Amino acid sequence: MSETDEIQEASLYERIGGEAAVNAAVDLFYDKILSDYRINRFFERTDMAAQAAHLKAFMGLAFGGPNNYTGRSLRDSHARLVKLGLGDFHYDIVVGHLTATLQELEVPAELVSEVVALVESVRGDVLGR
C-alpha cells in the first residue's frame, strides 16, 4: 500500500489532525460564534463548556473518529433554536465561521470542503425540515 492509499483510507477526523485539531477548532469556532451579534443570542442559555464538549464528541462521530457522542439527534437538539427563529441566514453564518476557523488553523482547502459538505448535508435536520 502506498502512502497515498493510506491517506485516502484515513478518516476525515484523522486527516484533519485528530483530537487535538478538533479541540482547537471547536474552541476557536465558539469564540467566533459568541462574538457574533447576529447569532450569539442562540447561546444565551447555554453552558458553553458542556456545549463545546458535546460538539467535540459529535465531530468525532461525524468525521469518522471515536464515537463518544451520546446526545440527541440534530433535529431534536436544535428544535428549541428553530422555534426562536434559527434559519438559513443563521446557518450560513455558522458555516462561514466554521470555514474561517478551519482556514485559520491551516486545514487544507480540500478538507475544509469536505467538512463544509458534511455540514451542508445536515442543514435540513438542524433546521427541522
Rank of each mutant, 00 (worst) to 15 (best):
A57I: 01
V26Y: 02
Y91K: 08
L86Q: 09
Y13Q: 12
Q103R: 15
G85D: 11
K32N: 13
A24K: 07
D47H: 02
F29C: 04
V82L: 02
P66M: 10
L102E: 08
G124H: 05
V119G: 04
T46F: 00
V95W: 05
G85T: 12
A79L: 06
L111C: 12
K56T: 11
T99I: 13
E106Q: 13
A25F: 00
A10Q: 14
G124Y: 00
Q8T: 14
G18N: 11
N40W: 01
E44Y: 03
R72W: 02
G18P: 08
S2D: 14
G96T: 14
Q103D: 14
H78D: 06
V126H: 00
I93D: 08
T4D: 14
I93N: 07
P108Q: 15
M1L: 14
G96M: 14
A49F: 03
A20P: 05
L84W: 07
V82M: 02
G128D: 07
R80T: 06
E6R: 15
A24Q: 05
Q8K: 15
S2Y: 12
A25T: 05
A10I: 13
A49L: 03
G18D: 10
T101D: 07
S35C: 07
A21D: 03
Q51K: 03
H78G: 06
A52Y: 02
I7N: 14
E106L: 12
Y13C: 12
L86T: 12
G18Q: 11
I39M: 06
T101N: 06
S121T: 10
H90A: 13
A25G: 06
Q51F: 00
A10K: 15
F63K: 05
A100F: 03
F58I: 01
G60H: 05
L61V: 09
F58M: 00
N23L: 04
E44H: 04
S35L: 11
L86D: 09
Q103L: 13
L28F: 06
G128A: 08
A21T: 12
F42D: 09
K83Q: 12
D92N: 15
T4C: 15
A57M: 06
L98H: 03
E19F: 07
L61P: 01
H90L: 11
Y13I: 12
H90W: 10
V115T: 09
E104I: 13
E110W: 10
G17D: 06
S121L: 09
H54C: 02
L127S: 07
G60C: 10
Y30F: 09
A50K: 08
F29T: 04
H78Q: 08
L81K: 05
V126E: 02
V116A: 06
L12R: 03
V122R: 00
N40K: 11
E3H: 13
V26A: 02
D31E: 13
N40Q: 11
E44I: 08
